[in-house]
């Protein structure tokens, strides 16, 4: 059925007068699991290279789509797999450096936010998770575009009260460290219960964990795993 004159006018009115727009395009599926290395400098380099090469056309493509369809796209964002997976042997200072690396990647890609400075601790806090938790207040206050999230509970596992107790302090510290800027650090942190895997919504976006991976990333022996 052909599109009518009034229908076209309606759409144009929505964009021009009522400011209809696409709030954001978030690129996910950037797994950082293969960026691991014993040298942390190398890890940072790998992370930076992987994000900036995978998402290098995000800005350009989103702008091109916005132009072609005449509907503005306001934000462009990137979601990565939970960063705690890379921090198993790292120190708090290194975790903060990793957050800064993510921030640098976001700035060089000119994306608005990068999500995935995250840890899933509902089943227990691993070394990497603890390092990330310790680093959170400083990481969030010393970066501009990095978003963090922590999963503290699921229906199946119950609530990790140790993590909840820590997060009370972390949120307070983050608020204090960014007190001169409306405590903006806390706006970039989400504490989850029952997070959806491959969640694209900031500030709680993270990708890849628990979901299907491509065979080349998985390297398991099982035929049923990632086919």
């Amino acid at each position: 059925m052909p599109i009518g004159f009034t229908e076209i006018q309606e759409t144009i009115r929505m964009v021009e007068m009522e400011h209809l727009d696409i709030r954001t395009v978030t690129m996910g599926g950037i797994s950082l699991q293969d960026c691991a290395d014993h040298d942390f400098e190398k890890v940072k380099e790998n992370v930076y290279q992987k994000i900036t090469s995978y998402a290098k056309d995000l800005q350009k493509t989103a702008n091109q789509v916005a132009t072609e369809y005449g509907v503005p796209i306001i934000n462009k964002r990137v979601a990565i797999s939970p960063a705690a997976e890379l921090l198993g042997r790292a120190t708090k200072q290194q975790a903060i450096e990793l957050a800064k690396t993510l921030d640098k990647a976001a700035q060089s890609l000119n994306v608005d936010f990068i999500g995935g400075f995250s840890a899933l601790v509902h089943k227990g806090i691993s070394n990497g998770d603890q390092v990330l938790l310790d680093a959170l207040p400083e990481a969030l206050s010393q970066t501009e575009r990095v978003c963090a999230s922590i999963s503290v509970a699921t229906t199946r596992t119950g609530i990790n009260m140790d993590a909840v107790a820590q997060l009370g302090t972390i949120i307070h510290q983050t608020a204090v460290l960014t007190k001169d800027n409306n405590s903006i650090g806390c706006a970039k942190l989400v504490v989850f219960c029952n997070p959806v895997e491959d969640n694209p919504f900031m500030a709680g976006a993270f990708h890849g964990a628990g979901g299907r991976r491509s065979c080349s990333e998985c390297r398991c022996q099982w035929t049923w795993c990632c086919s």
Partner: peptide, 16 residues
């Protein structure tokens, strides 16, 4: 004047 060019698909998506 205000002149806009948009691919036809966007109107299909909005109204069909």
């Amino acid at each position: 004047l205000k002149i806009n060019i948009q691919l036809e698909d966007v109107f299909q998506a909005m109204h069909r």
